[in-house]
Design a protein around this nucleic acid. Structure first.
Length: 669
RNA sequence: GGGUUCAUAGUUCAGCUUGGAUAGAAUGACUGCCUGCGAAGCAGUUGGUCGAGGGUUCAAAUCCCUCUGGACCCGCCA
């Protein structure tokens, strides 16, 4: 907030200078940034380099002219409140020095004001729109592995960023309950003699979670069996066909299996504090009229064509300029995977009439309600096989599809190509393609060490991709468990006075936070090599480091409250001069004041990584401050007041930012 | 073959969108600091011709081209 004003002030001065020397400011693309080292001041501009061509003078000459003459004549410069002086530095930079006393004085006025610290002045108040985020979308035939977790956590952080910056947002989770992978386990249960009842009670502590059982045993086993049991492959084809009829025995059985797996999957994601609003079931999208409506539109607009010769004879095909031909409808009239995505996307953007109602599905960890798509026609209350805990009526949730301004889908980068095609088609249908964004991230792969832990030994020192089919994966639940144990032993050492229950709670929160932080701090374009030992660390650039800094801050505040209730009199600068506060305090104040800028950027770029970086730096600066600026034994009352205000502001920003990343603030750890 | 993407310290990564001053963290190794607001911490040392070559520019890790190496995508699979 404050720093935005400072930059504005500099900008106003520079604009006036440009005006004086008759250069239109639109022609000059300069910036105002923080210089690399503190000796160069607090802000810096490259404007002289940009001017040197048009003015035909050397940058350093221009810099001197500006600083010594032009600036002195500016009305803005004479009325300035933040900048003490401007200096010229060798190649041609102009550096500005911030008035630290002014900064601190202003800071003291807002340091315990949440509004001022957390709200950007650029925030608009128009809430008449909705953003959709779709993430997780794991096939309901297996447990989530750490790769799925990356998807879910990125998506969830985005949701939290939008929510915290006041943007209306809903989270979707697409459930492919009629695809090949689900069919695989159904074949396992129905035709390969694998039991589906053995693990029925997923609440019992003894039994394995049903999603683990399906993914680990059934799915892997059935895929092994296919190679010498061709009859099972035929069965699968039949299962897939049966699934097209929602009232078939196979469908009803499948629905019950899918619900059980899905419930266990959600249990995992809820452990990681991930929020959803709607589950979209593919089977219902297939049953709805979305496809037929869209199919007509595609034909009418001549976007697809029926192939009468060549290798795609008998298929409906889309021809892309860049990607060649893509089959949408096979010669046996079934839809390809890609085809199913189009009406779905078009529906999300409000292009097709919404056929669904949203039915209560469950209450989540944050006590919000989760809904599922529902088609009135196929839903009957005596449908005993569909185990849904019916609450009351259908709709506490309403989405106005006319107000959707953006749909963001979080996908594995391997799907990016298909998504490109999808956008192409949407554009041809007349939809604004900028509304449909997909955010591709590189996958999570497993290190050699980790592979050998799950019984796979490689001769070469290489990491490999996870594969549900081959049983090569680390489940999200397992990663959490490993880290929980690791942090429990640490927590135990440090807190001998706490009960077992308290220790378990604390170590659990640490583990969840550590994993969430780990998956957001990397760039989307980076392949993450997951290693059970190295990835699950508790020191350095990790969530526990941040939590530790927070716990220190919180402890001081609690002690202050006990000993000397904070006085409410107006904090001011009386007795405080530049020499009384240190560089560390200024750096920390500047960083705190910078929060809204980073928050905005993170929101605009849809990138939570920036806030992870911000948070880590905040913790580092706070730890510095903690070491060098004692609070409880500070005797100078003015300095004490300043430090208390810094402490308070840090706590506010810590809590806000930690909630976005999903790091639990702990008083003790 | 066509396309996407990555390459920066022993290791894992920031920085590249929008070129700017001495390329930053973390971790590892080595060394200090707990009778002091919690040492999951702080301070210090070590460690990089930013994959190679060329081009544009006053200025290139950053932009453009070529090459090398890795990953991924390119089915009437999903």
């Amino acid at each position: 907030m404050i720093l935005e004003e400072v930059v504005d002030e500099i900008d106003r001065c520079l604009k006036e200078v440009l005006n004086k020397i008759n250069v239109p400011d639109s022609k000059i693309d300069y910036n105002i940034t923080e210089p690399p080292v503190p000796e160069f001041g607090d802000f810096s501009t490259n404007i002289c380099f940009q001017l040197s061509k048009t003015l035909k003078k050397s940058p350093i000459q221009i810099a001197q002219d500006i600083v010594e003459e032009a600036l002195q004549l500016c009305s803005n410069w004479n009325n300035r409140i933040w900048i003490i002086r401007a200096t010229v530095e060798k190649p041609g930079f102009i550096n500005f020095v911030l008035d630290k006393e002014a900064l601190i004085a202003k800071f003291l006025q807002i340091a315990d004001n949440k509004e001022a610290l957390l709200t950007s002045r650029t925030n608009t108040q128009n809430n008449d729109y909705t953003i959709l985020i779709e993430h997780t979308s794991v096939n309901p035939n297996k447990a989530l592995h750490v790769g799925h977790l990356r998807n879910a956590i990125i998506g969830d952080c985005l949701y939290r960023i939008f929510k915290k910056t006041g943007k209306p947002v809903k989270v979707l989770n697409y459930i492919d309950d009629s695809g090949l992978q689900v069919a695989d386990i159904i074949v396992g249960f129905k035709y390969a003699g694998l039991s589906s009842s053995e693990y029925y009670d997923s609440d019992s502590k003894e039994s394995k979670k049903f999603d683990h059982y399906c993914g680990n045993d059934v799915y892997v086993k059935i895929n092994e069996m296919y190679s010498n049991r061709p009859d099972l492959l035929e069965r699968r084809t039949k299962v897939l066909r049966d699934l097209e009829d929602p009232l078939s025995n196979t469908s009803i059985f499948t629905q019950s299996i899918v619900r059980r797996v899905l419930t266990d999957q959600l249990r995992t994601t809820w452990n990681f504090k991930i929020h959803y609003d709607i589950l979209n079931f593919e089977s219902q999208i297939v049953q709805s009229n979305l496809w037929s409506d869209l199919f007509e539109a595609l034909k009418e607009n001549r976007i697809i064509r029926y192939e009468t010769d060549g290798k795609n004879t008998g298929c409906w095909v889309y021809s892309s300029e860049t990607e060649g031909d893509k089959v949408l409808v096979r010669s046996d009239a079934t839809l390809t995977y890609f085809a199913k995505d189009i009406p779905y996307a078009a529906w999300k953007l409000g292009y097709l009439k919404n056929p669904f109602r949203f039915e209560y599905f469950a209450t989540q960890w944050d006590s919000s309600e989760l809904y599922a798509t529902s088609l009135e026609s196929v839903k009957s209350d005596d449908d005993a096989a569909i185990r849904i805990k019916r609450k009351s009526s259908y709709n506490n949730l309403s989405i106005n599809f006319d107000k959707i301004v953006k749909v963001i889908t979080i996908i594995d980068s391997r799907q990016e190509r298909l998504q490109n095609l999808l956008v192409e088609i949407l554009t041809k249908l007349g939809l604004q393609s900028s509304k449909y964004e997909y955010l591709g991230y590189e996958p999570v792969i497993l290190s050699k060490n980790t592979l050998s832990m799950i019984g796979i030994n490689l001769e070469k020192d290489k990491a490999v991709h996870m594969s549900g089919r081959k049983g090569i994966f680390i489940e999200a639940d397992l990663a959490l468990k490993i880290l929980e144990e690791k942090s429990l032993s640490e927590t135990k050492k440090r807190n001998p006075d706490l009960s077992e229950m308290q220790l378990l709670n604390i170590s659990r929160e640490i583990a969840i936070s550590a994993i969430r932080y780990y998956f957001v701090k990397y760039d989307f374009g980076k392949v993450i090599t997951f290693d059970v030992n190295e990835s699950l660390s508790l020191e350095g650039d990790t969530a526990p480091y941040i939590q530790y800094a927070y716990a220190r801050a919180k402890k001081i505040k609690d002690k202050l409250m006990e000993t000397q209730p904070l006085s409410d009199d107006d904090p001011n600068m009386v007795g405080l001069t530049r020499s009384s506060f240190s560089q560390i305090e200024i750096d920390l104040v500047k960083h705190v004041c910078n929060y809204t800028i980073d928050l905005n950027q993170s929101s605009e770029k849809a990138n939570p990584k920036l806030l992870a970086k911000y948070l880590f730096k905040l913790a580092t600066l706070f730890n510095n401050f903690y070491e060098k600026s004692p609070i409880l034994r500070e005797s100078d009352p003015n300095l004490l007041k300043l430090r208390i205000m810094i402490l308070k502001s840090c706590l506010i920003v810590f809590e806000h930012n930690m909630e976005i990343i999903g790091i639990t603030p702990l008083d003790r750890m």
